[in-house]
């Protein structure tokens, strides 16, 4: 915990102040034409209220985590692949020089 205690009051205050300021700027998004358009059109996602999806109850608990693993894991692997590709191209160019 000694690492967290180091100037924690000043640092936490700075994080808090910056986060609140950025959040206040983000809240102003609701005044944009884009927000008004979405509010006029309406928005809903997922099944209707009270309506249960037709899947096994155990899957109801597992599938959200599978979705997270896919949404985090696939871009992670793609990034690693792209970084490796860039590394190889860079090496080729260096060799050619």
């Amino acid at each position: 915990m000694k690492h967290l205690k180091q100037q924690w009051k000043t640092r936490t205050s700075i994080v808090l102040i910056v986060s609140v300021l950025v959040s206040l700027i983000l809240v102003t998004l609701e005044r944009t034409d884009w927000a008004m358009q979405i509010n006029l059109q309406g928005y809903s996602h997922g099944s209707a209220e009270g309506e249960k999806p037709n899947i096994a109850p155990i899957l109801m608990y597992i599938l959200p985590f599978v979705k997270e693993l896919v949404l985090i894991g696939v871009p992670m692997l793609l990034t690693l692949g792209i970084a490796k590709l860039f590394g190889l191209i860079k090496k080729r160019f260096k060799r050619a020089d």
């Binding site: 927000a35 979405i38 809903s44 996602h45 949404l71 692997l77 990034t79 970084a83």
Partner: peptide, 28 residues
């Protein structure tokens, strides 16, 4: 509750996952 914030919350919460994936890859 505004529909706009419902949509933003749903979309940003979904989009942050691939963003986290890239963040993890960059610090792997």
């Amino acid at each position: 509750i505004q529909d706009f914030w419902s949509k933003i919350h749903h979309d940003s919460a979904t989009f942050i996952m691939p963003m986290l994936g890239v963040h993890l890859a960059l610090n792997l």
